[in-house]
Amino acid sequence: MKQKNLELAVGLFVALGLAAFFMLAIKVSDLSSLGNDEGYRVTAHFENIGGLKARAPVTLGGVRVGRVVGIGLDPQSYEAVVTMSIDPKYDRLPTDSSASILTSGLLGEQYVGLEPGGMDSYLKEGGTLKLTQSALVLEKLIGRVFTNMASGESAPPKTP
């Protein structure tokens, strides 16, 4: 009887521990980060990816459709090459869709946002997104605002 209780308590303890690990795996971390996901790969070239990191989400209309799996540099064009893995559920993305690097909030993390195109052919494994828009780099943005302001000051007198 006493031995039974002991075994029961130990069994509960082990179950609790395993449940904790289960929670850490399912609820806390992203199980799909386990490499062998079934998504199809799509690449896109960007002039500048800013602070984009591997594992950043890929969204379409705010819905997560995949994630960034690799970041590299094209040695010829000196462009950044971003490889994304797209959930096979979303297999009807037009080939002329565009990708841009966006920031969630002012200081939030960066992610890839897709805009669907209008073609009838769809992206497949190994496909490429041609239309891309680089990350907004704050320093460049500020620089552009200043030049605009400078040209704006001198401009009005010219136009009647």
Binding site: L24, K27, V28, S29, D30, L31, S33, L34, R55, E109
Partner: peptide
């Protein structure tokens, strides 16, 4: 949390 925590590398 899920976006940032990696199963192998972290857990």
């Amino acid at each position: 949390m899920q976006a940032k925590v990696q199963l192998l590398a972290d857990v």
